[in-house]
Simulated scan of single mutants.
Amino acid sequence: MTSDVTSAPALSCAGIRASYGPVQVLFDAGLTVEQGEMVALLGPNGVGKSTLLKVIGGLLKPDDGSVHLGGVDVTALSTRKRVGHGLCQVVGQATFPSLSVTENLAMHGYTSGSRKWTKEAVEAALAVFPRLHARRDQPAANLSGGERQMLALAKAIVVEPKVLVIDEFSLGLAPVVVGGLMELVRRLNERGSAVLLVEQSVNVALSLVHRVYMMEKGEIIAEEQASTLAADPERVRALMLGGHAAGVSA
């Protein structure tokens, strides 16, 4: 039993059906992120990507289907308990604006139950992000967009997640800032976090992850190696513009 859990994917969800009231949004959606892997979920706006992330995070109860973290069925568990199973979600530039950089990071150490451990984890995170270290006593509200995104990512070092889910981390940021953030995500992955990335920029996603799932109208319509898609821009364009309807095979 232990070996099965140890070798299980870091994250897997299958047969996910989810609705907002009478409107069904997800139709048997599913994906897998293996241990140590980086995976992207791509597709146009409004196809259900963020809804699937809500189901994975426990913020939306699915009508059907299951979510597993490291082989453990967490479908019925609260968001807080999923964090205990190694899940961490970064949504945009979400921070506590009135709290300092250091206080923001310390907030994410609550699961450890140890002030000493939290203090050490915060210092470790600041060591990885020199710009945040220089602004450690400033309120998050005073940070630039790129710095707020760094702060949102830095919490992953404090939490040390087994699965890091990132939603639209490049949105509205300058290319030079995005390049730096991509390198930080790689470093988090090297520290042991499997990564699921939802990203509007196809170029950013393909240059960062190992595998890609494409979503259309609440369904996963294709699964590809990132390197394969990067070499075939016409296929990427077809999938992003509705490749399922156009007969593009998975």
Rank of each mutant, 00 (worst) to 15 (best):
A154F: 01
G113P: 08
A141Q: 08
L173R: 12
L196D: 03
E199I: 13
A106L: 05
S170A: 05
R187G: 09
V122H: 00
T118P: 00
D167M: 09
A156C: 10
A124R: 14
Q200W: 12
G180M: 06
E120H: 08
L126A: 08
Q138A: 13
L188H: 12
H133A: 14
A154S: 11
V159F: 00
E224W: 15
A140T: 02
H108P: 09
Y110D: 03
N203S: 14
S207W: 06
S207T: 09
E224N: 15
M214R: 10
P130D: 11
A121F: 03
S112Y: 14
A125E: 06
V165N: 09
L188Y: 01
A106T: 14
G146M: 05
S207H: 07
A154D: 03
N142V: 14
V122D: 00
S227I: 15
L197W: 06
E120S: 11
E199L: 13
R186Y: 05
M182Y: 01
V159G: 04
A205R: 04
A194V: 03
V202H: 09
L196N: 03
W117L: 15
A154M: 08
P161I: 06
L181A: 05
S112E: 13
I166W: 00
D137A: 12
L196W: 02
R186Q: 11
S112H: 13
L206Q: 07
L126H: 06
V204M: 07
L153D: 03
L184C: 03
A140R: 06
E223L: 10
D137Y: 05
K155Q: 09
N189F: 05
R135C: 03
E224V: 12
F169Q: 05
Y110S: 07
L196S: 11
S114C: 07
A140C: 06
L171H: 13
G192M: 12
G180H: 10
F129T: 13
A194W: 02
M182F: 05
H108K: 08
Q149L: 00
V209R: 02
G218P: 10
R136M: 06
A134F: 09
R211D: 12
A124W: 15
P130W: 03
P161Q: 12
G146Q: 09
R187K: 10
E147D: 02
L151P: 00
E223H: 14
D137P: 07
E160Q: 15
A141H: 10
W117A: 15
T111V: 06
F169Y: 11
G109Q: 10
P130T: 03
S170F: 04
I220Y: 00
A106S: 10
Y110G: 06
E224D: 14
L105G: 04
L184E: 09
P161V: 10
S193M: 02
K116C: 08
